[in-house]
Structure formats: structure tokens, C-alpha cells
């Protein structure tokens, strides 16, 4: 198991390195992201631009620039081109809000997806299944930002049930924290509930045809025991894999739309602002931050997967 984890961690570093290089190249190849001209202002003469370029080290060869940038990210010295604020600090400040949003939404989406998917599968072909299928398909067809806007308009503005956005730290007031996050949680969860309940349904229908489910019935287990211990347990394996990937993706940038509409000052909102001003350092840092989470959860999932499905463990220790 130790070697298995070590192998995954090495792979993880490799992918992160590749991503950082690609992001760096993309923003250096695109000509109009020349930061010096923008920082120096509209009426800057060539001399000023040259000085700014020099200050930022933009005259160095690309590999040197890359190394400098990465060094600054990891030592926490990276500052934004446009605002002089420390990038790592800004990201760190955004993490609690982003995590609050993502973890809450993830709990909601998994809970509902499992219940809906399970009911859909055991009633496959019935009225309840049809209804849940329709709901799920609507869920995956809603643009997240639009759903957020509509919920805000009707529930916060017209009916005034909820606040119109913003974020209250958990440490400040837990009740207000949850109250402010409820709509964002639901917004972010809807798409995934639809997607995951469909996935669990088809996964369960596949597993129901497995020989070992027939064995479980032949043993004289009750239908509920067959469904939970044998069908559901085995159907969750692919779902958990995907959950890890999606959770990583949501933390690593997927929540940006929800944060923008609900005005939650998390990492996503920060990224949105940085993008607006084409500010390379925060963009680099946030992309790395996002990629880090995606790859991290990828790795966690691989390890968890090995735990859930004993066959994988054998395969890995044999390698």
C-alpha cells in the first residue's frame, strides 16, 4: 500500500509540473497580455515600459521567468502585477469561503443523489423513476449562474426569504454562515444531484444483474439487505471515484460562477477579478491551486478506490 501511495504522489507532482508549464506558456504566447504596458499606464513611453519590464524580470529568458515565478508561489512572495497585493495571502483568505461553499454543496449533492438514484433504480420503469429521471435531466440542463440569478431574484428579492448574497465566516456566526450559504449550496448541488443520481441508477441496474446479487437472494437475505449490502455497496465504487474528481474540480475553480453571482469572496471570485485584469501572477497561482486540488483528490480517490475494491489492492501490491 505504501508503494502504491508513493507512486501516485510522484505522478501527482508530474501532472502539476506539466500544468504549470502549460499555463505559463499560454500566457506568454498570447501577445496582448503584455503586462508591462498595462502597468506603466496609458501614456507610458518606451523607456518606462522597459523599466517596468526590467523590474518584473520580464526581459529574462522564459525558463528563468518560470523558475522565478514558481519560486515566488511556493515561498509566498508572489505579488499581483495590478494591485501589489500578495497573491498567496489573497488565496489563503478566500479558502474558508470556498471550502464552506464546496463541502456543504458536496454533502447535499451526495446525500440527495444517493437517495434519488437508489429509489430510481429499485423502482426502475415506474412512475417515481420517471419523475426522478425528469427532475435529474432538468437539473443537468440548468446553467448554474442562471439558476443562481433566478433563485436570488425570486427567493431573496421578491419573497425576501434569503439574504441577497455575501458570506459570513463560520467563526463569526454559524447560523448566519449557514443562512447565507443555503442558496449557494443548493445552486451548486443541483447539477451534481441530477448527474450523480442518474449515474447511481444505471450503476445499480448493472450491478443488479451480477451473479453475486443472485447469490445474495438465494441465501435468503431480505430484499432490503440485498439492495443495500450488495447492490448499493458495489454500485458506489464508480460513484466515489467520480466524486473525488468532481469535488476537486469544484474547489479548483468550478465554484467560480456561484461565488460570482452570490458575491462570496472566495478563491473563485478572486480568480474572476484577476482574469478580468489579465493579471498573470494570481492567474498562475489560482490555476495551480485548482489543479492541485483536482490532482490531490484524484490521488485520494485512487487510494480510496483500492480500499473499496479489494481486487485493486492486490493488483497494486503485485506490481
Amino acid at each position: 500500500m505504501g508503494r502504491f501511495i508513493a507512486k501516485r504522489l510522484v505522478g501527482m507532482v508530474g501532472v502539476l509540473f506539466a500544468i504549470s508549464v502549460i499555463v505559463f506558456l499560454i500566457f506568454n504566447v498570447i501577445p496582448n497580455s503584455d503586462p508591462a504596458a498595462r502597468i506603466a499606464g496609458k501614456n507610458a513611453d518606451a523607456e518606462l515600459i522597459a523599466r517596468v519590464n526590467d523590474d518584473l524580470g520580464l526581459n529574462d529568458p522564459l525558463p528563468v521567468q518560470y523558475v522565478t515565478l514558481m519560486k515566488e508561489i511556493f515561498t509566498g512572495q508572489l505579488t499581483s502585477y495590478s494591485s501589489d497585493l500578495n497573491v498567496d495571502e489573497q488565496i489563503r483568505e478566500g479558502i474558508p469561503a470556498t471550502m464552506s461553499l464546496c463541502i456543504g454543496a458536496a454533502i447535499i449533492w451526495m446525500a440527495f443523489a444517493i437517495v434519488f438514484g437508489y429509489l430510481s433504480a429499485v423502482r426502475a420503469g415506474g412512475k417515481l423513476d420517471t419523475m426522478l429521471t425528469v427532475l435529474a435531466l432538468i437539473g443537468i440542463s440548468l446553467p448554474v449562474f442562471w439558476l443562481a440569478a433566478i433563485l436570488l431574484y425570486y427567493l431573496s428579492f421578491r419573497v425576501q426569504l434569503f439574504p441577497t448574497g455575501g458570506y459570513v465566516p463560520l467563526t463569526e456566526d454559524p447560523a448566519q454562515w449557514a443562512y447565507h450559504l443555503l442558496l449557494p449550496w443548493i445552486t451548486l448541488a443541483v447539477l451534481f444531484i441530477g448527474f450523480y443520481s442518474r449515474l447511481l441508477r444505471s450503476s445499480m441496474l448493472d450491478v443488479m444483474n451480477e451473479d453475486y446479487v443472485r447469490t445474495a437472494r438465494a441465501k435468503g437475505l431480505s430484499e432490503r439487505q440485498v439492495r443495500t449490502r450488495h447492490v448499493l455497496r458495489n454500485s458506489l465504487i464508480p460513484i466515489v471515484t467520480l466524486f473525488g474528481l468532481d469535488f476537486g474540480a469544484v474547489v479548483g475553480g468550478g465554484a467560480i460562477l456561484t461565488e460570482t453571482v452570490f458575491n462570496i469572496n472566495g478563491v473563485g471570485l478572486y480568480a474572476g477579478e484577476a482574469i478580468g485584469s489579465l493579471d498573470l501572477p494570481p492567474l498562475m497561482a489560482v490555476t495551480m491551486f485548482g489543479a492541485f486540488f483536482i490532482v490531490l483528490f484524484n490521488t485520494i480517490v485512487d487510494i480510496l478506490y483500492a480500499y473499496l475494491d479489494p481486487r485493486i489492492r492486490l493488483g497494486s501490491s503485485a506490481v
Binding site: 501532472v15 501577445p31 475553480g253 468550478g254 467560480i256 474572476g272 490555476t287
Partner: peptide
């Protein structure tokens, strides 16, 4: 594919979109 998969898709899309919208692409 793993590398693209690990990209924060939305973030990358937005960043590229914004950058390219300013001056287009000349490759």
C-alpha cells in the same frame, strides 16, 4: 489527456477567453 483533465476547466476557459478576446490569436 490526464493533464488537460486536471486543468480547472472553467478557470482555463475563462482565462483563455479573456486573454484572446483582447487581441485575438496570432500563431
Amino acid at each position: 489527456m490526464d493533464v488537460i483533465w486536471a486543468f480547472p476547466v472553467l478557470l482555463l476557459g475563462i482565462a483563455l477567453g479573456t486573454a484572446l478576446a483582447v487581441g485575438g490569436l496570432k500563431l
